[in-house]
Design a protein around this nucleic acid. Structure first.
Lengths: 258, 258
DNA sequence: TTATAATGAGTCATTTTGACACAATAATAA
DNA sequence: TTATTATTGTGTCAAAATGACTCATTATAA
């Protein structure tokens, strides 16, 4: 997925001096497709490494807005779920070796990038988006922007794979007292879809019957018509979220046993 | 609690140029005393406002180390529980009015502090410490360093009260799947002490018998001798944490029903 | 010596969980 | 057309957890 220069997105390119120095934001953007949890990544110039969609913070914008802007620029979406999950501020993330690898992967001169090479702290966000609605757009420095199966991520620059791990850990904890899925699934979905999300994040099988019973008992789902497509088997019902009940539960929280 | 200049702690005073510009760390330090959750605060020069112990990040130290250093400098303690809970990066935290209030509270010149007045992002940490072991030390800019009852906090500068609120929210969530208390309580304590911590953080009464049953079932407590001091009532048992079981459970997590 | 207040321990109905079982059914293969 | 297969909706049931109580016990204060 290459793009001509006409397609290159310069919306995140203010002057270096407009940025908060030494800080960046990086987004772990999760989607769900084909019964798999996906992560959106950008391809580095060396065609070997990949990176999280990230950016800098303009002095006149909030940190959260900076992250939101990155998300919108790469996906075309606004109004999606976006949440901080941690600050990555260790010294090991900008050692000479790390910086060297970064320059090689990006194929840029050390001089041009001196402002990014000193010492950088990044603020990690994760986003939950509806896969089908995303229109992946690479930024000016990247060759392409693609989804990867969460279980099969490519080699990434800096500590970006640590960021993905931490994002997952945070989701794993939140799963236990907040609903999830509204932001990842299309309007209509099956209970299997929902369960697969839980199983992927928790990294273990969940009893189908017990999961369904629990989910339905939460009162955040609406049962719809039958599903026709699919494999050689009985067709499952389709469900949609009861938006108001869902968001109420997001705030209130609940207890999940598994 | 005033201090002569001899007592002033300059350990966190490197040159301005050594710092990461535009970023700070602030610690919400929790202690437990007298059946109350306490927060350690610094008194501003105006004798009206208070602030969280905070500091800047030297370019050659990690973010976590910067927070740890602040904690050690104010409490005399090292090796305590310290955890990030969020980044505060809104623009509203450095509007002209806010900055003005800050200058007044600190009684410093705008010129001298120009480097801190532009736009600042702070990284919030919370710490859990053993009250009795803390030796509160004000920093160079503060009149004193004191504990406040969590339910009765004074007027604070910037968005520091928001930081306290967020720290509590984070603890409230963590309570549900991780044990707490080891870092807040002395070696020996009663179940009432432990329950009070839970009640304060969750801000509601918990049935005594049910709480005790649950806590004891976790297998992280050792029963000790009787307690003799106290009011006009039956003396409760003293307990201590089974350190290895406690830390195992910190990692593993568990499910709490209340 | 008695009254008080808080503790340790226990009861019990209800709810939730975990582990299965089983008939029903949509697509596919025979 | 019919049998096969994979998967679904629903149900059962024992075990565990929870929530709301009781009650005898006991260290201090009156």
């Amino acid at each position: 997925m290459n793009h001509s220069s006409k397609d290159i997105d310069h919306s995140l390119d203010p002057t270096v001096n407009d940025f908060m120095p030494g800080i960046s934001v990086d987004n772990v953007i999760f989607g769900f497709h084909d019964q798999q949890l996906k992560v959106l990544l950008l391809e580095c110039a060396d065609q070997e490494h990949w990176m999280l969609p990230g950016g800098y913070i303009i002095k006149t914008e909030s940190v959260n807005d900076a992250a939101k802007k990155v998300l919108t620029a790469r996906t075309g979406l606004s109004e999606v779920y976006l949440q901080q999950f941690g600050v990555f501020g260790g010294l090991e993330r900008s050692t000479p070796e790390v910086v060297n690898d970064f320059l090689k992967a990006m194929k840029v001169d050390a001089e041009k990038f001196s402002w990014h090479l000193e010492r950088f702290i990044t603020i990690g966000f994760f986003a939950l988006v509806e896969f089908q609605k995303v229109n992946p757009k690479p930024d000016a420095m990247s060759l392409s922007c693609q989804w990867f199966d969460f279980h099969n991520l490519p080699k990434m620059i800096f500590d970006h794979s640590d960021l993905v791990d931490e994002a997952l850990k945070t989701m794993r904890v939140q799963l236990r007292h907040q609903p999830i899925g509204y932001n990842l699934l299309p309007e209509e979905f099956t209970l299997k879809d929902l369960r697969t999300i839980y199983e992927t994040i928790l990294d273990r099988k969940i009893d189908r019957a017990n999961f369904n019973r629990k989910m339905l008992s939460l009162g955040i789902l609406h049962k719809k018509e039958k599903l026709f497509t699919g494999g050689a088997h009985k067709a499952p019902y389709l469900y949609s979220f009861d938006k108001s009940a869902y968001f109420a539960m997001l705030k209130e929280g609940f207890g999940l046993g598994f």
